[in-house]
C-alpha cells in the first residue's frame, strides 16, 4: 500500500508526556533547549555509531545552532516517510496523530521553490549545504565511463527505494536494470564496493565520500543523467508562524558558515563541504 509512515515515540507508548509543541524563541530560551528533528540511520548526517553515540554532521550543526541561541540541543529522531511532505507534517508543523509533539526546527530540508509551495505550513530557509546524487566507480574495474551504457557489463550498488535505484532501473527504457544490485542500507552498498562485489555505487556524494576508506580508488562520474535532479540545496524548516525563530536561526547559520564551523564539521566526517551559495536557482 501507499502509506503515510509514522513512528510511535516513547512518549506515546507510556502516554505520560505532556504536549510537546514547537515554541517561540522566548519559550525555547526559557526552556533552555532547542528541539531538532533529525533523520535516523542517515550517516554521515545523523546516526548512532558503534558505541551507541548519536553522531553526524547534522547533529553537530544542530548543536552549534543551539549553542548560538544559548541553549542546549534536544534531538527528535525522525524515521523517513515515503515523502518529505509527511516528515514535515509529522515533525514540524502538526505532529504525528499518535503524539510525541513536534520539533522547533528540522534539518536537511530541501530549499526548492516548488517544494516550499507544496508545504505552506513550514518556512524553509538557511540553505547550508549542496547535496548531490552521483555515481562513483572503481577505475580498476571501469577505466573509462563516457556514458552510462558502459555499466551494462558491471554491477552498481544502490540503496533500496532510493532515487539512484529508481533512476538506474528506469532510465534508457530500463537498459541497466540487470546491472543494479540493491542493498537495504547504502552503507551495505559501500561495503560491497570496497569488497569488489560491485564496480560502482550510486547515492549521495557526502555518503560516498564519508563511507569509503581514504585509499579506496574512486572516480565520480561526469556522465549526464537525464531526468534526474542531481543537485539540490538543504536548509532548515520551522513552523511558518515562527518568523522570529527563523530569523535567529538564519543568522546563527550564517555565522557558522562565516567562521568556518560548517566546513570544519563536514571535514570531520571526510565530506567536502559544498556551500549552498554555489547552487544556482
Amino acid at each position: 500500500m501507499i502509506k503515510p509512515q509514522w513512528v510511535i515515540g516513547a512518549c506515546v507508548g507510556l502516554l505520560l508526556c505532556g504536549n510537546i509543541a514547537a515554541e517561540g524563541l522566548e519559550k525555547i530560551k526559557e526552556k533552555g533547549a532547542l528541539r531538532v528533528a533529525l533523520y535516523k540511520d542517515f550517516p554521515p548526517y545523523s546516526f548512532v555509531d558503534a558505541e551507541q553515540k548519536t553522531r553526524g554532521i547534522d547533529v553537530d550543526i544542530a548543536r552549534a545552532l543551539a549553542a548560538k541561541l544559548g541553549v542546549s540541543m534536544n534531538q527528535m529522531p525522525v524515521t523517513a516517510g515515503e515523502s518529505m511532505v509527511d516528515d514535515l507534517r509529522n515533525s514540524v508543523w502538526k505532529g504525528h496523530y499518535l503524539g510525541g509533539g513536534v520539533a522547533d526546527v528540522m534539518l536537511h530540508v530541501p530549499v526548492d521553490a516548488r517544494f516550499a509551495e507544496d508545504n505552506p505550513k513550514v518556512k524553509i530557509f538557511a540553505p547550508y549545504f549542496q547535496e548531490q546524487v552521483t555515481l562513483a566507480y572503481n577505475p580498476k574495474r571501469i577505466p573509462n565511463l563516457p556514458s552510462l551504457q558502459v555499466l551494462l557489463d558491471h554491477k552498481v550498488g544502490v540503496e533500496l527505494d532510493s532515487v539512484a535505484s529508481v533512476f538506474l532501473t528506469s532510465t534508457m527504457q530500463g537498459l541497466l536494470r540487470n546491472s543494479v544490485k540493491h542493498y537495504p542500507k547504502f552503507t551495505d552498498a559501500l561495503v560491497a564496493f570496497q569488497k569488489g562485489e560491485v564496480s560502482a555505487v550510486m547515492g549521495q556524494r557526502g555518503q560516498i565520500e564519508s563511507g569509503l576508506a581514504k585509499d579506496q580508488p574512486v572516480i565520480y562520474s561526469e556522465s549526464p543523467m537525464p531526468g534526474l535532479i542531481q543537485k539540490w540545496t538543504v536548509g532548515l524548516a520551522v513552523k511558518a508562524d515562527n518568523p522570529v525563530l527563523a530569523t535567529e536561526l538564519e543568522q546563527a547559520m550564517k555565522a557558522l558558515q562565516k567562521d568556518g564551523t560548517l566546513a570544519k564539521i563536514f571535514a570531520e566526517y571526510h565530506v567536502n563541504y559544498a556551500a549552498a551559495e554555489e547552487v544556482k536557482h
Partner: peptide, 13 residues
C-alpha cells in the same frame, strides 16, 4: 512527480 524529496534527498515519485 520528478520533484519530490525523501529523507532529505531528491526522489522520482
Amino acid at each position: 512527480e520528478p520533484v519530490t524529496y525523501k529523507k532529505g534527498a531528491a526522489y522520482l515519485g
